[in-house]
Design a protein around this nucleic acid. Structure first.
Length: 507
RNA sequence: GCCCCGUUCGUCUAGUUGGUCCAGGACGCCAGAUUUUCAUUCUGGAAAUCAGGGGUUCAAAUCCCCUACGGGGUACCA
């Protein structure tokens, strides 16, 4: 059996779409499971759509995700170059080979002429197609005499080379996900293989490169399924063995219809791209998973499960587990709507596994940037307490700001519920009593002990008093266990805040 | 329009060769418990007449056909 070699082949026309990331991931998982190679090829045959920075973006994205290529752009390898623009010279010979074999032909119709044909057809609610029914009436080497053709070429007239589909032939192939597919060739149009600018189209380049690079499996998005019969026919025309095909379902937008687009992310508030991207022309910024606080492991896990599962109820998989358990047969056939709530849940799961120290170091930087001077041990103990209530590291602050700042105001709702007539006086009495506790490490426990005794003794309501204290110290009804707050804040600060509240609210 | 692919809870899906599926899990939602609060966590609940209609069969989410709907394609773009 030949070695498994798969490729991810994006075109550098902008940031990498999350659907593309999933395609790459599935390629990676399959390759690694089979002990094969995973290559990165850049398909930049359309020079008009080139976007500066896109290629670097793609490479950086995979670096962040932790998916390593074995071969390709940025790595090298013995089947290079891996950028199609650098392979430009070789494609023409292959196109000509097909012409010589009678499998392709020259076409001299200009873009304008074809556009007009299409417009005419559309006016009649029909569809113009360059195919076996129309090609004899168009300007090409099939309709023209050999001499006319030669003269046109010699005169330097621009031409393209088109694939010539045979008439009424069943083109059959098997898709690893969808099974057997059969299409009649008469329905297919004679796709351009070689453009007038001297570049191949995707169709030609991808077949030639996959063949030369010994690609064994083509795993790509469903949008390629309609042109797969052409690809299969090309392999046949070249008399090459075709790779196996697997066409992945698309990722759809969460609401409404259609495939997930760049706009949906910004509209619905979740990233569509792995990394933040600024469009070089419009300067428009699109958010990225990395910048939004997602962990790469969570993104990978989430994406892997969007259209695939291992048949058990397991949902959390490490990359290695995915490699071990992945199977193309278990990929679903239909598109999947992106679910941002589930994405969030995945991140929550993974965030809990990040060591407190690591999170604390990150958080400390954020605190320093905010102007708070503190130490790593203190931050680490805070992280340990509030981590589980966060889905993202950036939520740490909202869940623990009170450890660093005194409340500047008291939440209105909480105030109404937790601070009644006479509470200030009660608070003052409690402060007096707590002041008597020795200021050391045990002060928090001692304070609790005191309150557990004091509250019932004075026939007070436990919740009411504890929550008044919480309101005084935190400024809201949120926060971790009161004793933990006492401990971390220390006696002085805790009592100070209670005093301030008692004076400020004064009820 | 034409071609291709698809269609199980709101969402992601399980359901491999038809029977133990009056359809299971997860996210989300709702309720209860725990927590002196909020969040977390735990327990429970609602939630798909398996797109609809015809077959085949003793038996169909599972096989066949039709319809509807959804998606993709229909460029000298990938």
């Amino acid at each position: 059996m030949t070695k498994v070699r798969v490729r991810f082949a994006p075109s550098p026309t902008g940031p990498l779409h999350i659907g593309g990331v999933r395609t790459a991931l599935y390629n990676y998982l399959f390759a690694k499971q089979m002990g094969g190679d995973f290559l990165l090829r850049i398909e930049d045959t359309d020079q008009t759509r080139f976007v500066p920075g896109a290629e670097e973006y793609i490479i950086e994205s995979f670096k962040w995700l932790g998916l390593k290529f074995d071969e390709g752009v940025g790595i090298g390898g013995e089947y290079g170059p891996y950028k199609q623009s650098e392979r430009k010279a070789m494609y023409k010979d292959y196109a000509l080979e097909l012409v010589n074999k009678g499998k392709a032909y020259y076409a001299f119709d200009t873009a304008e002429e074809l556009a007009q044909k299409r417009a005419e057809a559309e006016a009649e609610k029909k569809n113009f197609q360059y195919d076996c029914h129309t090609r004899q009436s168009l300007k090409n080497s099939l309709a023209l005499s050999e001499q006319e053709t030669q003269e046109l070429i010699n005169s330097g007239a621009p031409f393209v080379i088109r694939f010539k589909f045979e008439e009424n032939e069943q083109i059959e192939f098997d898709d690893l996900i969808r099974g057997h597919i059969s299409v009649n060739s008469s329905l297919l149009d004679d796709k351009v293989l070689y453009k007038s600018d001297g570049m191949p189209t995707y169709h030609l380049a991808n077949i030639v490169d996959d063949h030369l690079m010994l690609i064994s499996h083509v795993i790509r998005g469903e949008e390629w399924l309609p042109s797969c019969p052409l690809h299969v026919s090309l392999y046949k025309a070249f008399e090459w063995e075709a790779p196996k095909f697997a066409h992945l379902p698309l990722i759809l937008k969460p609401d409404g219809k259609g495939k997930l687009s760049k706009r949906d992310g910004d509209r619905l508030g979740f990233p569509v791209f792995p990394l933040e991207w600024q469009d070089p022309k419009s300067n428009e910024i699109s958010s990225g998973y990395r910048e939004s606080g997602y962990l790469p492991e969570a993104v990978i896990n989430m994406l892997a499960l969007l259209g695939w599962n291992d048949g058990t109820e397991q949902e959390l998989f490490s990359l290695q587990e995915l490699v071990d358990k992945f199977s193309i047969e278990r990929i679903s056939k239909h598109g999947a709507k992106f679910d941002m709530e589930k994405a969030k849940w995945f991140n929550h799961q993974y965030l809990q596994n990040v060591p407190n120290r690591v999170l604390a170091e990150e958080y400390l930087k954020e605190l320093n940037a905010k102007g708070y001077n503190t130490n790593i041990e203190f931050v680490e103990s805070i992280v340990a307490l509030v981590k589980e209530r966060c889905s993202f590291a950036k939520e740490l602050w909202d869940n623990s700001d009170y450890f660093f700042v005194r409340p500047s105001e008291y939440a209105e709702k909480a105030l109404k519920k937790r601070w009644k007539e006479g509470t200030s006086q009660r608070m003052n009495d409690i402060i007096d009593n707590l002041s008597k506790i020795e200021d050391n490490k045990e002060w928090g426990e001692k304070a609790e002990e005191f309150l557990m005794e004091y509250i019932p003794k004075n026939e007070l309501n436990m919740g009411q008093i504890m929550n008044s204290i919480r309101l005084a110290i935190v400024g809201d009804t949120k926060g971790v266990n009161m004793v933990e707050i006492f401990k971390l804040l220390g006696k002085q600060e805790s009592l100070e805040r209670m005093k301030i509240a008692s004076e400020k609210i004064n009820l």
